[in-house]
């Protein structure tokens, strides 16, 4: 291997600083959430305690955050499943270049770049004018899908652009029906990418704020609840909540990544040796 140029070390340092910039603040509130009972929102630490984490379990200190967490979790799962199913179907559809596919594609892009507050406002207005009750599982769900579906669709585009069509042709030549080809050939091959779509679906929903703001109804999701806290809570309890929900996100991300790694390893172990001249 040739020696590293000097620019490598400069860029490494830059990259290190960037990662510090990304994670530093999160780590700081992680530390500060262990503030002593008399400690404030900034350093110095006045002792170390679990006081603020304990506060999270007292309703008078923080309101209904556990209810909000349950709602966010449930909504995240619903959005995740819906996003995966709809994205895969749409991804398959776009391979056929059906009439109107161009318009639909640009609609999906528009959905991604439209300012979130417009979705929030528009959906809220429609529901109120139609006399429907806004609720996180109806208007909230729909609004969040306008954010997660374009991501799912873009991932599916990336997946199918790299998809080797000869697998499908082989399946068809062996007499598989269209559904069998999808079920037993296409889906298993793209499974790891579907996990990626699922990860986007869940986490983007779980953290979604702007599109849910006017569409969640009287029961808040967790981000809305946290935002409400920023205006009236001035103790490190908000850091404790931030630390917990960030750890929760990390756990979700970690389990998705681990699953993908396991699938890949299984494939490497059990995969076919066809075409390798064995």
């Amino acid at each position: 291997m040739e020696p590293r140029p000097r620019s490598f070390y400069v860029l490494s340092a830059f990259f290190g600083l960037f990662v510090l910039f990304l994670y530093g603040p999160t780590i700081t509130i992680g530390i500060l959430s262990f503030q002593g009972p008399s400690g404030g929102l900034t350093f110095p630490m006045r002792g170390v305690s679990l006081h603020w984490f304990a506060d999270l379990f007292q309703e008078q200190a923080v309101g209904d955050i556990w209810g909000a967490f349950r709602r966010s979790f449930a909504l995240g799962l619903i959005v995740m499943v819906t996003t995966v199913v709809i994205s895969v179907m749409a991804g398959l559809a776009f391979r056929k270049r059906f009439a109107g596919s161009g318009v639909l594609f640009y609609l999906a892009i528009a959905s991604l770049v439209i300012p979130s507050i417009l979705i929030s406002l528009g959906v809220g207005l429609i529901f109120s004018q139609l006399g429907l009750k806004i609720h996180w599982a109806t208007s909230g769900l729909g609004s969040q899908l306008t954010w997660t579906l374009p991501f799912g669709l873009l991932i599916m585009f990336a997946v199918f652009n790299r998809f080797d069509k000869s697998y499908e042709e082989a399946a068809r030549d062996q007499g598989a029906t269209a559904w069998q080809t999808i079920r037993y050939v296409v889906l298993p091959i793209i499974a790891p990418s579907l996990l990626g779509v699922a990860l986007f679906g869940f986490t983007l929903s779980y953290d979604e704020f702007a599109r849910t703001l006017l569409t969640a109804g009287s029961y808040n999701t967790l981000p809305l609840e946290i935002f409400g806290m920023t205006t009236n809570v001035t103790t490190p309890v908000i850091y404790a909540l931030g630390t917990l929900t960030t750890l929760f996100s990390f756990a979700i991300i970690g389990s998705f990544i681990a699953t993908v790694l396991i699938i890949q390893r299984r494939r490497a172990r059990l995969g076919s040796d066809a075409g390798k001249g064995v």
Binding site: F18, V19, L22, Y23, P25, T26, T28, I29, L32, L41, T42, F43, L199, F200, T203, L204, Y206, D207, F209, P223, I226, F227, T230, I238, Y239, G242, T245, T246, S249, F250, I252, I253
Partner: peptide
């Protein structure tokens, strides 16, 4: 680099206070 994208924006804003 991408993991923070999947965490809460509100928390990431709050974390600048200290």
């Amino acid at each position: 680099c991408t993991i923070p994208f999947w965490t809460s924006n509100i928390i990431r804003m709050i974390s600048w206070i200290p």
